[in-house]
């Protein structure tokens, strides 16, 4: 078994309104920054033991499917790195 960190990033599907991101963008613009768009996402870093990187990735994906993301509104991706 090897120690991995699986990073699960959960973001709203394209086209789903994100009022918090819009509010954040407006606040940045009020500070004088110029930007075209801003998207927010949730990132979960999961430390786990697995036989391989693929096995770690699979388990983290299942975590996303079953809890971390809501498939109605979210897409997610998983990246795995050895600890």
């Amino acid at each position: 078994m090897t120690g991995y960190t699986a990073t699960v990033t959960v973001r709203l599907k394209h086209g789903v309104l994100d009022p918090e991101a819009e509010t954040t963008q407006q606040a940045l613009e009020r500070l004088g920054f110029e930007l075209e768009d801003l998207r927010a996402a949730d990132r979960f870093e999961v430390d786990l033991e697995a036989k391989s990187a693929d096995a770690a990735s699979e388990r983290a994906s299942e975590m996303a499917e079953r809890l971390l993301a809501n498939p109605t509104i979210h897409d997610y991706d998983v990246e795995v790195a050895e600890r």
Binding site: P19, E20, T72
Partner: peptide, 17 residues
């Protein structure tokens, strides 16, 4: 109810935030 699949869709952040 929506999160558990009893009903479809999702209730998420108000447009006003």
């Amino acid at each position: 109810g929506c999160e558990s699949g009893l009903t479809e869709g999702a209730f998420t952040t108000n447009e006003s935030a």
